[in-house]
């Protein structure tokens, strides 16, 4: 049953992948003009050098020829090489994808851990000062632009703290340039960017939990639970929250695609060597192969994320079972 369902979803996803990658290519190709990827205004380059490079990259051919060549490669597991630096696209992705997952995964975790209590408190104390304060904080966290928050945090926790001789946090990169890479070092580098990124999740999810919780707490089975004589805490957290979290799971599942792309602004501000930053920079430079490779993976992740959310929903809500 389940295997069939997954298989069907997978086949449908292939169509999506093809469509998305084709559209991506068309968009890049139509806007590129005559620009040759990777060419800067370097006085040492002659017109014939630039022309030769364009031909080598296959940019003299119509885009559909390029696309078919690329598909052929992908089918054989070859995602080609970057048009700008010649490294394999796979090496770029494999190098950076873990960094992105580390960042967004952590941000999502922080988001969940904070959103649930904030949302529950907001629901339990709705209308109170505490509720209003939390609402303002949530909305602010959502409204404040990530790059601004990032820069402010860097200013406070990196530069200012260091100037006063206090322990400070690093402002870019995933680990220290020298002797870096151990767990503590990575965590230190993760704190600021993950915090900025988690604000977005925290704000949306805490609002959501709050309203979901309010709705759940007005349900009859909550009244039944109280009539059975259990503590209010048990009513709220066992009977109530368990139901309120179900729709949140779907929300989180829908965020899974954001695991790849959601951290883009934060990655750029903090120089985080992730895949979002890679795609962003390379798209602006018309590095077809890299952008297509990243798009391919991102699409696969979106599809996987949606599937996972649906399956999780089925696990958590017994009223939904798949055939």
């Amino acid at each position: 049953m389940l295997a069939k369902y997954v298989a069907r979803r997978f086949l449908a996803s292939l169509v999506v992948v093809l469509g998305v990658t084709l559209i991506t290519l068309v968009l890049m190709d139509r806007t590129r003009g005559t620009y040759v990827p990777g060419i800067d205004l370097n006085p040492a380059l002659r017109p014939e050098d630039i022309a030769r490079l364009r031909a080598d990259l296959g940019l003299d051919r119509p885009f559909y020829i390029w696309y078919l060549t690329w598909i052929w490669g992908v089918v054989h597991g070859d995602f080609g090489r970057s048009m700008i630096d010649g490294s394999t696209v796979m090496s770029h992705i494999l190098d950076r994808l873990p960094n992105t997952l580390e960042l967004t995964g952590t941000a999502i975790l922080i988001g969940i851990v904070i959103a649930i209590p904030v949302g529950v408190i907001g629901a339990l104390r709705h209308g109170s000062k505490a509720d209003h304060t939390l609402t303002v904080v949530s909305v602010a966290g959502f409204a404040v632009p990530q790059f601004w928050m990032g820069l402010i945090l860097i200013l406070i926790f990196s530069v200012t703290l260091e100037q006063h001789g206090l322990p400070w946090l690093p402002s870019s990169g995933a680990y220290s340039a020298v002797n870096g890479g151990d767990f503590i070092d990575r965590v230190e580098h993760l704190i600021l960017p993950a915090t900025v990124l988690s604000f977005f999740y925290m704000s949306t999810w805490s609002r959501f939990i709050r309203s979901s919780m309010l709705e759940v707490l007005s349900q009859d089975y909550i009244r039944t639970a109280r009539a059975k004589g259990m503590s209010e805490r048990r009513v709220v957290y066992l009977h109530g929250l368990r139901n309120a979290l179900i729709p949140l799971v779907t929300l989180i599942g829908l965020e899974l695609p954001g695991l790849v792309s959601g951290g883009l602004v934060v990655e750029v501000v903090f120089g985080w060597p992730g895949i979002g930053k890679l795609a962003f920079e390379r798209a602006l430079q018309y590095d077809y192969t890299t952008v297509m490779g990243v798009t391919f993976f991102a699409t696969m992740l979106v599809i996987a994320g949606n599937l996972l959310a649906d399956l999780l929903y089925g696990v958590l809500d017994p009223r939904i079972r798949y055939s």
């Binding site: 402002s171 870019s172 750029v268 501000v269």
Partner: peptide, 14 residues
């Protein structure tokens, strides 16, 4: 990332 980061990291010694 940018010139502001250069300034910050020169200050912090990174």
């Amino acid at each position: 990332p940018d010139s502001v980061a250069v300034t910050n990291q020169l200050k912090t010694g990174e």
